Simulated scan of single mutants.
Amino acid sequence: MKKVMRLLTVFAACSALMFSLFACSNEAPEKKAAEEPRKAETPAEEVKTVKAGFVYVSPIGDAGYSYAHDQGRKAVDALDWATTAFVESVPEGADSERVIRNMAQKGFDVIFATSFGYMDPMIKVAKEFPDTKFMHCSGFKKSANMSNYFGRIYQARYLTGMVAGAMTKSGKIGYAAAFPIPEVIRGINAFTRGVRETNPGAEVRVVWTKTWYDPALEKDAAKSLLDAGCDVIAQHQDSPAPQEAAQEAGAYCIGYNSDMSSFAPKAHLTAAIWSWAPKYVETVEAVRNGTWEGNQSTWWGIDTGVVDIAPYGPMVPEDVKQVVDARKAELMKGDDLVFAGPVKDQNGEVKIPEGQTPTDEELLGMDWFVEGVVGTTK
């Protein structure tokens, strides 16, 4: 009997030991799992795609105004999270309203309208699509979901005027101009101020074409100025036709929008040029991250790089380059001396007194010519 009891005792002890080991083997994984924090399973961050639309007044192959804007669009399109589309050669007025509305209906997040005459059509469409962002170039109207923007291209025109004034021999410089609106008038005035900085007795003769883009008409305008004795041709036109006319006549030319020296290499002195890419990228980034603001007016100066002058032609003397570069350095510092008073109009009346500079509102509404311009604002 005792023997049986001893066997039972040993069996019980072994069972208890096996149970304890089994329990420990089951407990270890649970304890380890409890001690190690579980890694959170987070979904991949969703990348917001921004759809940006661009409306151009002339063909992008014009090598001019629309071409410069389209270089900016391409920079946006190169972004991984952005897509773009454009419509070129859109007339100002009803056609532009239809194009802008069509883009809004297709769900574009932001629409850039790049010509002055698109202003009223865009502000009308903006009211119909409050969730869409609208950006108008060169105008002044704005709303809760529409802002306007431009560059102080008049600063670059002033510098190119200095070059033209230094290079003319006849003292007569021609200017083929599109429409008599403040933007164009302001540019002519700034150019003339630059001309008279280096050649006080020179004059700038203006011919209106009443078109932004018509190479044949632009060329005819330049020829009429050349026939009138002008030996430098400047322009506020979208094509290189005026420069081609200048080269054919053995005269010099000042370009606009982009470096068009390849079209008239023997005549091209320099040009007032645009570089939209950084600001277009900056704008769509603001749309993407929710920091874009409507009802804003932005006017970028030469210090931002939005406006500048093209490289000088080989015929421009070194001393002329130095004088112009020194003025550019002042503008880069923020010293906007282009219209620093005293400034007189064509009739000799002081429009901007000595010691004063015009406000942006006054510049945006400029509708008079400075002393030295031959032509009318109509």
Rank of each mutant, 00 (worst) to 15 (best):
D80F: 06
I153G: 07
P59W: 05
V163G: 06
R186M: 03
N295Q: 09
M18Q: 12
R152V: 02
S89W: 03
V374A: 07
S147M: 08
D131I: 08
Y213S: 11
K51F: 03
W212I: 08
Q296E: 15
K51Y: 07
T209E: 10
Y65F: 15
G334M: 05
L225I: 08
K266P: 07
M18V: 15
D360E: 13
V99L: 00
F140A: 14
F129Y: 15
V204L: 09
V50C: 03
M366K: 08
F263E: 05
S25A: 15
G187W: 00
S262C: 11
Y118S: 08
P353K: 11
E293A: 12
I273C: 05
P278L: 06
G301W: 05
V55L: 02
V110R: 02
F11D: 11
R6W: 14
M103N: 03
F116Q: 02
N295S: 10
S143H: 06
T84Y: 04
V287N: 06
P353W: 08
T192S: 00
F134D: 03
M18F: 15
W208L: 07
E183H: 10
A34V: 09
P215R: 01
F129G: 10
T84M: 04
G201H: 12
K3H: 13
M366Q: 13
H268V: 11
K378S: 14
V4P: 08
P342W: 12
A166Q: 00
I352F: 05
S170N: 10
E361Q: 12
N257A: 12
A94D: 13
A177P: 07
L159K: 08
F108W: 08
W276E: 06
V76L: 07
T283M: 13
A156M: 00
S262G: 11
G334I: 03
Y149C: 11
M1W: 13
Y154S: 00
G117L: 02
D80A: 15
N145R: 04
L337A: 13
V232L: 01
T270W: 04
K223H: 09
P278R: 01
E318Q: 12
F86N: 11
M167S: 09
R101G: 04
A267I: 02
L225M: 06
F140Y: 14
D335C: 10
H69M: 03
D336H: 08
A202E: 02
I173G: 03
G139Q: 01
R152G: 00
Q105M: 14
D77Y: 01
N102E: 14
Y67I: 07
M135E: 15
T211Y: 09
E293Y: 01
K210I: 12
I254S: 03
P37F: 06
F22T: 14
